[in-house]
């Protein structure tokens, strides 16, 4: 298996500048979705965008590593507020739509979604 031959989705999209553009597309989708928008409302939109940029960077294989423990601690307050599978699925759906809108090929989208899926147990605190 050659690591060098296969670029991450993060690199293929164009690295950090591409994430900045992608996060706006993604953030608009989650804010416009009334089922989940209350988890993303933040007086400080810049801070919220930065969190989402870190999330997109992680799931596209970029230079952000969250441990399972980070994911648990970060989402614990949201789990208390009722975060469940339906919300996780909605976010994953917006992630898929964002990547498709940015022209990411289907096999790579699937790969990103698989990374996101692997975080489900920690995000939902199971």
């Amino acid at each position: 298996m050659s690591v060098a031959a296969e670029k991450s989705v993060y690199e293929q999209l164009g690295g950090a500048p591409a994430m900045t553009a992608a996060v706006e597309v993604f953030y608009r989708k989650v804010l416009a979705d009334e089922h989940i928008s209350h988890f993303f409302e933040d007086v400080d939109m810049e801070r919220q965008a930065a969190k989402q940029k870190a999330f997109l960077t992680m799931v596209t294989g970029g230079p952000v590593q969250y441990s399972g423990r980070d994911m648990r601690a970060g989402h614990a307050p949201l789990v208390k507020r009722g975060l469940n599978d339906s919300h996780f699925d909605a976010v994953a759906g917006h992630l898929k739509a964002t990547l498709e809108e940015l022209g990411v090929a289907a096999p790579l989208v699937a790969k990103v979604l698989a990374i996101a899926e692997s975080a489900r147990v920690d995000v939902l605190g199971r």
Partner: peptide, 18 residues
Amino acid sequence: VLSLRKKLFLAGLSLKDL
């Protein structure tokens, strides 16, 4: 101001320009 910012962002304005 906060509600207008959200509406304009959803209308397509970029956060860096708000």
